[in-house]
Write a protein that binds this DNA or RNA. Sequence first.
DNA 1: AAATATTAAATTGTTGACAATCTTGGATCA
DNA 2: TGATCCAAGATTGTCAACAATTTAATATTT
Lengths: 227, 227
Amino acid sequence: MSDIDLLALRQSSTLSELVADKMEKLILSGKLAAGERINEAVLAKELGVSRGPVREASMLLTSRGLVEFIAFRGAFVRKISRAELLEIYDLRAVLTGQACQLAALKAGGDAGPLNDLHDRMEKAAEGNKADRYYELNLKFHECLVDMAGSARLRTMIDSLVNEMHLYRQVSLRSHPDMAQSNREHRAILDAIVKGDAEKARELGEAHVRAGKQRFEAAGAETLVEDE
Amino acid sequence: MSDIDLLALRQSSTLSELVADKMEKLILSGKLAAGERINEAVLAKELGVSRGPVREASMLLTSRGLVEFIAFRGAFVRKISRAELLEIYDLRAVLTGQACQLAALKAGGDAGPLNDLHDRMEKAAEGNKADRYYELNLKFHECLVDMAGSARLRTMIDSLVNEMHLYRQVSLRSHPDMAQSNREHRAILDAIVKGDAEKARELGEAHVRAGKQRFEAAGAETLVEDE
DNA sequence: AAATATTAAATTGTTGACAATCTTGGATCA
DNA sequence: TGATCCAAGATTGTCAACAATTTAATATTT
């Protein structure tokens, strides 16, 4: 594990934030595994900082949904059960619906980068490049939320997406049906451009719920785990 | 301002959390005004602790939506504009809808304390006791969310409710039409008891949106402020 | 041998000192 | 007069030492 880049420090960022970014990467890449305790002293030494920034970073990540704090016991990488994941899908669905509705109201006929992203996803789907599709899919959804123009909504959804990634450090990457998924994107996009807010909401919500169902169908054979 | 109660400390709580609770009260009561900077050293001295716990408490409150952190400038009590308040109403509406749906699914015909709360609100409405009604209303909504059984959903909604209270340290307390509001509660309650999840969702969402409209109607004459 | 109590080690929580950054007020200059 | 620059003060960020608590390892008891 490499030290914090001291160059990066000097751009009005605080050490704690840099550590937080580093930790976020460690967590989302699975190098800090779900459920694992984060030893402040050890991580601090590895990053070449004192425990303070590590503590603060842990708290930052707590509010981003990646870490859980327990008094006198420490910071733990969150662990998401299957039941929670399904619950998160539902929350993300209604919030994404809200985002699409707002986007439709604010877009004024301008789809922004959505069209381009959709086309590139189309290509990825045709080439059966799941990783590429997944990456673009994240961007598409981010863009959608940005168009809604609500920082609060963005934070909430980002947090949920973060948590989803903690499910068995999972590849939700294996996208069962990219073509279908992208058709749904197309429909959302169209509704936004047309300014049909209610339709956009409905489609956005349905899109995430469909994702949930694709996930459930894919994992139907696996047993339900308790914790 | 009084010192931290040292008795309270010894129940497996950490100093930072106690400070956070204290600060939350100071903020919601308006003693720390919206927009104001929180001077760590001063507050620490007043509470009889060092700056560390105050800092951590500030970060805790950040994730609860009450405080905003700016690097090298400090922690500020959040300030909510009218536009943001309306945005928050919308988010709370969809999340409350989700909560009601889940509650209906999980209640199994049992309304829990909702019936009792509804009755007491009825009395408060008849007696035109707005403060009492407001207080019970908060409890009713909390109870609703608890019945949904999602800690995540609870956190999200709590955060939004917190933020709403920051709007001009406001009394949203002046409830224009308690009787009507409580009729809506009744309908939600009935849907939950009947297990009609879709109806419960719809009514829950509509109830918050109605609250938004009541607010907009009440403040229609006031000018829109930029920030 | 199993369960409980005791002690030592590891880890988190808190503090005060120091460093880095921002803010304020006054001096300088056009 | 007004704007810019500079220095002093105030405030936040970071660190390392110490205190409180938990965890583990060991001893004790039944």
